[in-house]
Amino acid sequence: QELLLAESLGKHPLQNRWALWFFKNDKSKVWQANLRLVTKFSTVEDFWALYSHIQLASKLTSGCDYSLFKDGIEPMWEDSQNKRGGRWLITLAKQQRHTELDRFWLETLLCLIGEMFDDYSDEVCGAVINIRAKGDKIALWTRDAENQEGVTHIGRVYKEHLGLSQKVTIGYQAHADTATKSGSLAKTKFVV
């Protein structure tokens, strides 16, 4: 029904409905209170309307995140659809905020909504961008860290879309490992 409605309005329906979340670090509040659902969309046109309306990630203040997840999955590793999963992590150097951050994030969003991971697109849960003074991060979250074939396929396609050189490697961490260790100490499960 939703698909027919989108087409009748001359819009291009997406395979999934997506939810954009915004996180703003306010230390006077608990973590969950700082996380807000911005909106949901399910057509290409509504994605662009939203994207054009919100601030570029590079203009956000430190401590803020954007997350884009499939409708029904909350942007936290505790969600039942995330907790057995993990993330491909892109760690950026400080100067890349001005040169590559917005482009990487847009490419990430296009990969998600365009379902560009072939047979493994169902493995994708969402993506998160963290704006941090010490270095920004972008992560693509998948649902099953044990699905080596799916995870590595997604990683290869993702890396290609970001335009990363073959000399650069990106790593995948299971949320279960990240949750028990602090950031950079989490072990890397796969590399592409």
Binding site: H12, Q15, V44, W48, L110, G114, S121
Partner: peptide, 18 residues
Amino acid sequence: GTRIIYDRKFLLECKNSP
């Protein structure tokens, strides 16, 4: 069923279409 897939070029064209 079938999956609705869009490539990068198509998505970017949609941004610029009226």
